[in-house]
């Protein structure tokens, strides 16, 4: 059996090994992605983000359980931070999900956020799981910084998890998270002031492309509200399918991915050119303030006929 067949037939060992190849962007990994690409695009990708400690892992475990109750197969990609110094990481999201470890229709993979390429890595891991036939793929992000947005960008439905007292009204009107979510969760809804957080949140979010983001109250530790949350995710999926926004969104994503690949290639080509000392004069001049970096770039552009 060839690789594609083994992946499509659900061979876990092959799937797991291939994810490693894809994670390290190896030749084998790229070759497999080329072949698998036409089998992707069927899974619905759900991104879950929110500050550390807000209950993402517990919630993801509950969501997966609810999906399994509905006989939907699931892939999970759980991203945890890695050390910028050693590259080491403790990937501990599984602790909350180990009940699901032996379900043959669930595949969970922990990923460290190393090398600043986690957005692309995650996207390609999702593709492998998608081609392997998972109906829904849940990505759990770290919960901090730009890395999160890179990861979240690959999701069809973006779920933002908050908790009561997670900020005053000013936090609520800041730009960012509260603009990009499709579904908002107020977890730990049994804490005081959950209702107030909800009303502040409902004032902060607004309609986007014909979809008014839903707010769902949950208590992940008991599972309360999770059914409603999964309903909301599917309502958003249906909205995307009905409104042609899914295709539009994915077309944008395709465009930016191809551009990204081109930029990467160009970058490599420039570094190669720079390594053979041809432009070292220019760099020295910039360092000595005889040239500014903008002019330097223009000179190189001209030289290269760009």
């Amino acid at each position: 059996m060839d690789l594609v067949e083994r992946i499509r037939s659900g061979n876990k060992r092959t799937l797991s090994k291939l994810i490693t190849e894809v994670e390290y962007d190896t030749e084998t990994g790229r070759e497999a992605l080329r072949e698998l690409y036409k089998y992707t695009g069927n899974a619905h990708v759900v991104g879950i983000t929110g500050s550390p400690g807000v209950g993402k892992s517990t919630l993801v475990a509950r969501i997966v359980k609810e999906l399994r109750k509905r006989e939907i197969s699931v892939g999970v990609v759980a991203v945890d931070p890695s050390s910028p110094f050693t590259g080491g990481a403790i990937l501990g999201d599984r602790i909350r999900m180990q009940e699901l470890a032996c379900d043959p229709e669930v595949f969970i993979r922990s990923v460290s956020s190393s090398a600043g390429t986690v957005g692309r890595t995650t996207k390609n891991i999702i593709r492998v799981l998608d081609a392997a036939g998972k109906d829904v793929i849940v990505i759990e992000t770290i919960g901090a910084g730009q890395v999160d947005l890179d990861v979240l960008n690959v999701a069809d439905t973006k779920v933002i998890v908050l908790m009561p007292e997670s900020g005053d009204e000013i936090q609520m009107i800041k730009a960012g998270l509260l603009e990009i979510g499709d579904v908002y969760v107020i977890n730990k809804a049994d804490l005081e002031n959950a209702a107030r957080t909800k009303s502040q949140l409902s004032l902060a979010i607004k309609e986007r492309d014909g979809w008014i983001p839903e707010i769902v109250m949950t208590i992940a530790t008991s599972g309360e509200g999770v059914e409603k949350l999964v309903d909301a995710i599917f309502a958003h999926k249906k909205h995307l399918e009905d409104s042609s926004n899914l295709r539009k969104g994915r077309l944008e994503a395709v465009k930016s991915e191809v551009v990204e690949i081109l930029v990467e290639k160009l970058k490599m080509r420039f570094y190669e050119k720079f390594s053979n000392a041809r432009y070292s004069d220019i760099f020295e001049q910039v360092l000595d303030k005889e040239l500014d970096p903008f002019t330097a770039a223009e000179l190189i552009e001209k030289e290269e006929g760009l």
Binding site: S82, G88, I90, L91, G92, R94, I95, Q98
Partner: peptide, 8 residues
């Protein structure tokens, strides 16, 4: 520098 998958 290792990635540790910790299951508890």
């Amino acid at each position: 520098g290792m990635e540790v998958i910790y299951t508890g």
